[in-house]
Amino acid sequence: MSQTRLHPTPAGDDDFADPLQYAFASRDADTPQLVSRALDRGQAKLAFQPIVMAADPARTAFHEGLIRLLDDAGRVIPAANFMPQVTNTEIGRRIDVLTLDLALRMLRQNPAMRLSVNVSARSLGDWRWRQTLEAGLAERGALGERLIFEISEASAMMLHEVVMHFMQDMQPRGVAFALDGFGGGMTAFRHLKDFFFDMVKVDKTFVKGIAGDPDNQVLVEALVTVAHQFEMFAIVEGVENAQDARWLQGIPVDCMQGYHFGAPRFEIDDLVRVALP
Rank of each mutant, 00 (worst) to 15 (best):
M1G: 14
R5L: 15
L6A: 14
G12E: 10
D13S: 06
D14W: 00
D18L: 12
Y22D: 13
A23N: 09
F24V: 14
A25C: 09
A25D: 00
P32A: 14
S36V: 07
S36T: 11
A38M: 06
R41Q: 15
Q43E: 09
K45D: 09
L46S: 03
A47E: 08
A47I: 01
Q49C: 05
Q49E: 08
P50V: 04
M53G: 01
D56P: 04
A58Y: 01
A61W: 00
A61N: 07
E64C: 10
E64L: 05
E64P: 04
G65E: 01
I67T: 06
R68L: 08
R68D: 08
L70W: 07
R75H: 15
R75L: 14
V76D: 14
A80S: 11
N81T: 13
N81L: 12
N81G: 14
N81E: 11
T89S: 15
T89D: 11
D96R: 04
V97P: 03
V97S: 02
L98G: 03
T99P: 04
N110A: 09
V117M: 01
S120A: 10
S123R: 01
L124V: 11
W129M: 04
T132D: 05
E134T: 09
G136C: 11
E139D: 12
L143Q: 02
L147R: 03
F149S: 06
I151R: 02
M158V: 07
H160R: 13
H160P: 00
V162E: 13
V163L: 11
V163W: 05
H165Q: 15
H165L: 13
M167N: 03
Q171P: 02
G174W: 02
A178S: 15
A178Q: 07
L179W: 02
G184E: 01
G185M: 00
M186G: 00
L192R: 00
D194R: 15
D194N: 14
F197A: 08
D198L: 02
V200C: 11
V200I: 15
K201F: 07
K201C: 10
T205M: 12
F206K: 12
K208E: 13
D213R: 03
D213F: 05
P214F: 08
P214M: 04
N216A: 03
V218W: 02
V218F: 06
L219Y: 02
L219K: 07
E221T: 14
T225P: 05
A227W: 01
A227M: 05
H228G: 09
Q229L: 04
I235D: 00
E237S: 12
E237Y: 00
G238E: 07
A242R: 11
R246F: 10
R246H: 14
W247K: 08
I251W: 05
I251N: 05
V253L: 08
M256P: 07
Q257A: 04
Y259G: 04
A263P: 00
P264C: 09
E267F: 06
D269E: 13
D270M: 07
L271T: 14
A275P: 02
P277I: 07
